[in-house]
Design a protein around this nucleic acid. Structure first.
Lengths: 171, 171
DNA sequence: GGACGATATTTGAAATGTCAAAGGTTTGGA
DNA sequence: TCCAAACCTTTGACATTTCAAATATCGTCC
């Protein structure tokens, strides 16, 4: 009994080891990373060519588009996963282009709230429509059922990662 | 949890349809992107804290570690998915730290080959071992079968994206 | 052997990114 | 009241990133 069981286990180990070495998680990570880079670069190129915008600007405007009242810079920083200092510069440039407005509310003068201007909303909604289409095109060869499955399972990965962060996590 | 499975599935579908409607690909992309950012930032932090290294440096050294003869900068650029100009600066800093060496082969003086020094190999192999462990830890809550499945299905995404890139096009 | 196109890398400008430290502002006790 | 801790944003020093233009070298065609 131990003989047959251990034999099949050994075989699995051997096959896996022979074909790919080991480190399943590492291989998944490398593939996720390269795929994400590939898509990012394509989106970046198209945003640039068709709208003269950058990806970080698009991401930031996407957050503001969903919150028409505007967002504090710290909140923007969390949602875009970009550091505070970086948000400052991004908003500065967007404001210079007339796409975003900065306001300090009366209640608390430590705070700066960023908000899309009318021009910003128009500009973003055109980009968003195109952006969605690009993604559909790029993933056109993937079975929708697989897309759903990936969405779910990557959620599991994200959740696992969130629970094993070293520094100050929680949110 | 107290409800039957089919009821909760229906509910999910309804909620999903009502709240987000369509855009499955868009939602997958946003989740992939945020998950990748999360993992990247964690690795970045640990590389910095434990080894005083940066992620791009680690990535570049990883390529050189697999090619002990060294790589031309253009090849490095392709493999790391980083632009040529960027590789120049990365290699410069790594050379200043004594981790990488630059050589111009006799045959072709246009070419620069980068190669890990002994110090670079030692340094990288310590980082690589830790790096692999971090990924295993971060993904510890994900079923290995799911990890395999993700690896395969993300491969399908990557392949689809590769087939729908806008080369040099016009408007 | 000299001009030309193809290759390979570097450079320069601008934007994005991190981190740590410094600025203001509020708030909550003593 | 007053001051120290907490909060929010900006600043400053660097590293990374992209793109486009500039350099440098090779190979070839004549």
């Amino acid at each position: 009994m131990t003989e047959s069981e251990s034999a099949s286990v050994d075989l699995e180990i051997i096959v896996q080891g022979a074909q790919e070495g080991k480190k399943l998680e590492l291989r998944l990570w490398l593939r996720m990373l390269s795929t994400t880079k590939l898509i990012s670069q394509e989106i970046r190129r198209r945003l640039r060519n068709e709208f003269g915008a950058t990806l970080p600007q698009f991401d930031l405007m996407a957050q503001l588009y969903r919150e028409r009242e505007g967002l504090r810079l710290g909140e923007l920083s969390k949602r875009t996963m970009v550091t505070n200092g970086n948000v400052t510069g991004l908003v500065e440039r967007l404001e210079a282009d007339g796409l975003v407005l900065r306001v300090t509310p009366d209640g608390d003068r430590r705070v700066t709230v960023a908000k899309l201007t009318a021009k910003g909303e128009t500009s973003f909604s055109a980009m968003a429509a195109a952006h969605e289409g690009w993604l559909r095109d790029m993933m056109a060869d993937v079975d929708p059922a697989i897309v759903s499955e990936l969405w779910r399972d990557i959620g599991a990965v994200k959740s696992s990662v969130s629970n094993h962060l070293s520094g100050t996590d929680f949110d």
